[in-house]
């Protein structure tokens, strides 16, 4: 064993027990540890350094002479395997279980479900508020020929010609009023109700 290295190790141990090593210096302590096998001799060295401090302060006691590092090392030789095995496989097991469907659902689907429910509730609230506002105001937009589809425009023009006919004018007006009343939900409003006439369902009958 190189005496120079040993002195270097002893100096680092001396600084270490005084909390005078940087975190980076800890790495160098491990290098020392590897190269000269920081072991019983260095543990007893640290114990003696502590003892020197106690003696200088006049606090030397029986406890100052306790050195159980060797016993602890021996005990942990038997324990270490269990501890390292139990520490790492926990992570491994959790990684593997992430591929289970149930775990996957737990991890990903649960927040998405919550998000979907929240979005649905928000959408319903928006629709409700809009409907409430429109029913309270009762305002309907004037029918604009620019926004009507061609078929609806034709119907409107035909009805208008019929209404203009002086012979059946009163009857036509009454019919038109009834039509408007019965189809009020299709009227163009500033709500979603106004959109309903523009939704066209297409289906084919089976031959």
């Amino acid at each position: 064993m190189n005496t120079n290295n040993e002195n270097q190790a002893a100096e680092k141990i001396s600084a270490y027990i005084d909390d005078a090593l940087n975190v980076d210096d800890i790495e160098s302590l491990f290098e020392v540890n590897d190269s000269i096998k920081l072991a019983d001799s260095h543990f007893s060295l640290a114990t003696r350094y502590h003892m020197i401090g106690d003696a200088i302060r006049g606090e030397l006691s029986d406890a100052s002479m306790v050195d159980v590092s060797t016993q602890i090392q021996r005990a942990l030789c038997h324990e270490s395997l269990d501890v390292t095995v139990s520490a790492k496989p926990v992570k491994k097991a959790s990684l593997e279980s992430r591929f289970d469907l149930f775990s996957w659902l737990e991890i990903f689907a649960r927040p998405l479900t919550g998000l979907a429910v929240a979005a649905s509730v928000a959408a319903l609230m928006v629709v409700s508020v809009i409907q409430l506002e429109s029913s309270e105001s009762g305002q309907q937009l004037a029918v604009s020929s620019e926004v009507l589809p061609a078929a609806a425009l034709d119907t409107l023009m035909a009805n208008k010609q019929s209404i203009d006919d002086p012979v059946n004018k009163d009857q036509r007006v009454a019919d038109f009023d009834v039509y408007l009343t019965e189809h009020a939900e299709f009227a163009a409003q500033d709500t979603l109700q106004g959109r309903i006439p523009y939704v066209r369902a297409v289906s084919y009958e089976a031959e």
Binding site: I13, Y16, I17, I26, L29, F30, N33, L38, H42, F43, A46, T47, H50, M51, S61, A63, S64, V66, D67, V68, S69, I72, Q73, L76
Partner: peptide, 16 residues
Amino acid sequence: KAFDLLVLKYQLRVSK
């Protein structure tokens, strides 16, 4: 080995 260093540092304080 890191635990050995913690033992080295604290065993006397714990003993007291």
